[in-house]
Each structure stands twice: as structure tokens, then as C-alpha cells.
Design a protein around this nucleic acid. Structure first.
Length: 509
RNA sequence: CGGGGCGUAGCGCAGCCUGGUAGCGCACUUGGUUCGGGACCAAGGAGUCGCAGGUUCAAAUCCUGUCGCCCCGACCA
């Protein structure tokens, strides 16, 4: 008999269905009645809150302050940066009225606005308007601001967490007196993202620069962290942009430098979004559901009392409550992280309860019943190992070792993701091999989802945007980034021209 | 916006070809038996068959339109 899994679809047989099933089974989010928008449920939002809390600390440690700017951007602000308009105009939601009136029993918009308001798809222009007022002198710089907000991008096709019409994010916006300092900031924040992704999300990333075609509209340089999902596609998990003086000129951010010269500031912007939740799912979840990395898990440990007879109830509960208190005193991640422990005393079937936590991806499950109490032991199951095979552990050993166990789970999840990426990354030196690597396997029905194939290709590239476009048309493969780390010069296999280093090619989300 | 598919109980689906007044599994409620675990038995509640027209004595079923969702493209964090 086939093993019964936590969810219906598997990654191998039907990745397209597997992803939303994990989201539903883990109770992370659901589609709302509003097309393209999602409802983030408590378990999913708790993950986001942990992302926020950690990143917010990292931003403050690097000298940034939080502020908040309007949801609405006057159309005229938006028009000031031409490339920016090109990039975002097609996906803007626009507010044109400020009142509803009843006509023939129906409410209709009335009171047209003199100037339409764009619902922010990103806030460079509205924040720039404030920065222009705040900056007079080089002594006002650098200006290091972050905002936690929602933004709206009217997308054609949406997927929970990965691409929704409205999403939550943070956007850092900074202004500097020199280009060097702005570039340094851009790279520093990219590094913050990479550290967060690898140390907290247990998701290996490649730091790199985007090609011209993939650059943020209006930026001079765009940098990113790219991760490989379990269908071997690349997911851009965070971006950091060096905006040069483009937005400073558009918004009039000017200052007098120490030589009394009126100069435009150099700005940066950087952001990550609720897409990170999708990244965690597609990096770690398996055919039984979600697996939360311990450092971001809403709960790292769930204690499930096993109460067979009513007369055992009080004894078991007392023991479990004491165990919870003891476990909560423990630390992991070098003493930085405290334990979040759930005592699930709900009166539902033990099997149902267990599978619910498996699907939600709690890293460690502990079952305690009368027999365990007699022996002062507990049944312990690690979500990253076999999901349904708990092992007996002495209580003292469990309490003393729980931190190390969480560290081990965090480390093994990262190692597994890294091994997966390595397994599906290929160094390619010929055009033929490149095309064969990415060619979609044929399916009987052209409407079937494409089977999982390809991966990351490390290939030399002469940097020609027209060539990149051609390859995108042929294979739907693009340069995900030009890695920051040092590489060897070589020959572009498509043109025979020299190439400074290998770049990462992949299909992407 | 192009090509394909699908809308039937909370969820997953059958029924549609060959019209006759709605069914299955899971979930839910109640009772009982089990139980270191995704249990079993019995009884029960729950659906204007996406919506609007049309054909017909009769429409979930046939026809037309429309809305929504999914997949494959184009667009994208």
C-alpha cells in the first residue's frame, strides 16, 4: 500500500498543483474574493512577522530608521522618471474618484479627482519628494530610511505569495553625498539579504548583478539574490538598486556639498517581500507539506499530550506544561534565538493532530503520554527527517539537547537545499549543450504542465542584450545574475567573443 | 489579450454523450465501539448543479450569451 502523504500532489508528479496544496495544507494563505489578492492566514502571517522582526533588527543595526509614506502617489510625481514610467505604467492601479453616489439603486463613482492618484507599485517617487525637502546640506546625508508597507502591481497571472496584486514588503530608500557611498550602501544591503536568506531562511542564494534587460526601471545598477526552487527554476528573492542620480534629478534631491556646490544626491533602494514566504515553501516543503526553518518558524516545537483515559489527563497535562516551561528556557542559534513552544491540548484525534503539525512544518514534534512519564522520556520527531517516525528520548537529554537539535535542523535544511542546487547546476561551454539542457521535454498533451527539467547553467556570456532576448525567446531562459564572486575569463559559447566570467542562466518565476 | 480545460454540498469529484426532477468520498453533527494515534459501525444535517436567456410537457444534462477559475503563452518582485 502506498504511503499516505500529507497532501495530494507530489513535487515530482505535479509541481504546479503541489505548491498551492502546500499553502492550503499548511494554512498559510488563501485566495481572496478580490481577484489576484490573497488572505494571509495566522500561520503564514506569523512567518512574515518573524521575517519582519529579524530584518527590521538588521536594518536598524546598519543605521536605518523606519518611516511611513503615503499609499497614493500623484500621477505627476510618477511621470518624472521616464524609465520608471515605462517599467510600471502597465501594472498601476489608479484612483480617479473620491466619492460614491447612488444612481438607480447602484453606487457609482462621483467626484472626479483633479489629478489621478496612483496606488504605489513602489515608492521611489513619493519618498523622493520628501527627501527633496529633507536634504539641504551634505550634513543632512546620508539619509537612511526604510518603510514597511503594502504595494500594488496589477499582474496578469498571480500565485499565492510569489506574485499577488497586493503584497507586503519593505523598501529601503537612502540618499548619499557620493556615488561611492551609495554603491557601498547598495552592496551592504544586498549582503544583509544574503545573510538573512542563508542564516535564517536556510536558503542558499547567489548574489549578483542583473543584466540591462532585467534591471529595475530607472536604476543604474540592480543587484539581486537568486535562489533555486525545487522545480529548478530561479526565484529572485531580494533586490538592491543603485539609482545613481536618476531619481534625485526627477525628485529634486539636491544639497550643497562641502565646497559650496549644488549637487544631486545619489540614491539607493532595496526590498524584499512576502515572496520570501513562497521562497521558503518552494525551497524546503516536501510531499507532506511545509517545513519551516527553525529560526523563522512560528513555533519550533509542539508538545502533544497523549491522553487515553480521563484520569490520566491532569497528570499528563501537568507534565507537559512543566516540559513546555523548561523548553522555553532553552536557546539556539548561538544563544540568539529563544524557543517558541506550543502545547496542543485540543481534544481531537492524535493522528489528525500530528498530521496537522506535519503539514504546517513545525520542526520538532513531541508526544508525551502516561507511559513516557513513567519512564521520564518523550517521543520526539524531527520534521526534516522521516515525518512519521518519532523516537524515544530521555526528558533531560531532550531538554538539554533541544537547542542543538534545532541548530542541526536549520543546518541540515540549508545543506540539503545547497546540495539540491549543486546537483542541478551545470557548467556549460557549448551552445548545443545549453539548448539541450533547457529544452522542454515533450508532453502528450500540449496543455499539460511542463515537466521539471534544466536548472542553473553557468555559462560565459558576452553581455549582448539582443542575444539574451533571443535565448529568452527560444528557451524562456534568462541571465538570472552575473555573480559577484570572482570568476575566470573565457569565451561566450553563443558568439565566440570574450567573456569576463560565467553568468547564471535559468528559467525563472 | 490569444489557445485549451473546468465551474454540481465546506473540500475533492461522478452524473451530461443517449433530457425524466441529484449522488459518491472526505469533512461536519449525534449515539455507540475502539484507540500510543491519519479507526470502525449506525443515524443525521448540508446543494436555487457559476449566472442569464432559449428549446422542451420536462434541463445539471441540449443551444446561445455572460462571469469566474485553472493550465499553456505574452507581462512581472
Amino acid at each position: 500500500m502506498a504511503k499516505k502523504l500529507g497532501i495530494q500532489s507530489t513535487r515530482a508528479s505535479n509541481y504546479q498543483d503541489w505548491y498551492p496544496e502546500v499553502v492550503a495544507a499548511a494554512d498559510l494563505a488563501e485566495n481572496s474574493e478580490v481577484k489576484g489578492c490573497m488572505v494571509i492566514k495566522p500561520w503564514g502571517y506569523a512567518l512574515w512577522e518573524n521575517v519582519q522582526r529579524v530584518l527590521d533588527g538588521m536594518f536598524k543595526d546598519t543605521g536605518h530608521s523606519n518611516a511611513y509614506f503615503p499609499l497614493f502617489i500623484p500621477l505627476s510625481y510618477f511621470e518624472k522618471e521616464a524609465a520608471h514610467v515605462d517599467g510600471f505604467a502597465k501594472e498601476c492601479a489608479v484612483v480617479t474618484h473620491h466619492r460614491l453616489e447612488e444612481r438607480d439603486g447602484k453606487l457609482v463613482p462621483a467626484g472626479p479627482l483633479a489629478e489621478p492618484l496612483v496606488v504605489r507599485p513602489t515608492s521611489e517617487t513619493i519618498i523622493g519628494a520628501s527627501f527633496a525637502k529633507w536634504v539641504q546640506s551634505y550634513r543632512d546625508l546620508p539619509l537612511l530610511i526604510n518603510q514597511w508597507a503594502n504595494v500594488v502591481r496589477w499582474e496578469m497571472r498571480t500565485r499565492l505569495f510569489l506574485r499577488t496584486a497586493e503584497f507586503l514588503w519593505q523598501e529601503g530608500h537612502t540618499a548619499h553625498a557620493t556615488a561611492e557611498e551609495a554603491v557601498e550602501e547598495t552592496m551592504k544591503m544586498l549582503g544583509v539579504y544574503a545573510t538573512f536568506a542563508e542564516d535564517y531562511m536556510a536558503m542558499p542564494v547567489i548574489q549578483g548583478e542583473k543584466t540591462i534587460g532585467e534591471r529595475f526601471p530607472g536604476a543604474v545598477q540592480t543587484f539581486c539574490i537568486e535562489a533555486m526552487m525545487q522545480d529548478r527554476k530561479a526565484l529572485q528573492a531580494g533586490t538592491s538598486h543603485f539609482l545613481g542620480q536618476n531619481f534625485a534629478k526627477a525628485s529634486g534631491i539636491q544639497f550643497l556639498d562641502d565646497k559650496n556646490t549644488l549637487t544631486h544626491a545619489w540614491t539607493t533602494s532595496w526590498g524584499v517581500s512576502t515572496r520570501l514566504i513562497g521562497a521558503m515553501i518552494m525551497t524546503h516543503a516536501d510531499d507532506d507539506g511545509m517545513i519551516c526553518p527553525p529560526r523563522l518558524a512560528p513555533k519550533q516545537v509542539v508538545i502533544m499530550p497523549v491522553v487515553r483515559k480521563p484520569e490520566d489527563r491532569e497528570r499528563v497535562m501537568t507534565y507537559c506544561k512543566a516540559l513546555k516551561v523548561e523548553l522555553e528556557k532553552q536557546r539556539f542559534a548561538g544563544g540568539e534565538d529563544r524557543l517558541r513552544v506550543e502545547l496542543d491540548a485540543r481534544d481531537i484525534g492524535g493522528g489528525d493532530k500530528k498530521w496537522e503539525w506535519v503539514r504546517k512544518g513545525v520542526p520538532i514534534r513531541i508526544e508525551v503520554g502516561p507511559r513516557d512519564i513513567d519512564g521520564d522520556v518523550a517521543m520526539v520527531a524531527r520534521r526534516d527527517k522521516q515525518a512519521d517516525k518519532p523516537v524515544s528520548m530521555p526528558r533531560a537529554e531532550l531538554v538539554a539537547g533541544i537547542g542543538a537539535m534545532l541548530d542541526d535542523i536549520q543546518a541540515s535544511m540549508f545543506a540539503r537545499a545547497k546540495a539540491f542546487r549543486a546537483e542541478h547546476t551545470r557548467v556549460i561551454d557549448t551552445k548545443e549543450e545549453f539548448y539541450a539542457y533547457f529544452e522542454s521535454p515533450r508532453t502528450k498533451n500540449p496543455n499539460d504542465p511542463t515537466p521539471i527539467h534544466g536548472g542553473f547553467a553557468m555559462t560565459h556570456f558576452n553581455g549582448d542584450p539582443a542575444l539574451e532576448t533571443k535565448i529568452k525567446e527560444d528557451l524562456k531562459v534568462t541571465v538570472r545574475c552575473i555573480p559577484l564572486e570572482a570568476g575566470e575569463p573565457g569565451t561566450c559559447p553563443f558568439t565566440g567573443q570574450p567573456s569576463a566570467k560565467r553568468v547564471v542562466w535559468a528559467k525563472s518565476y
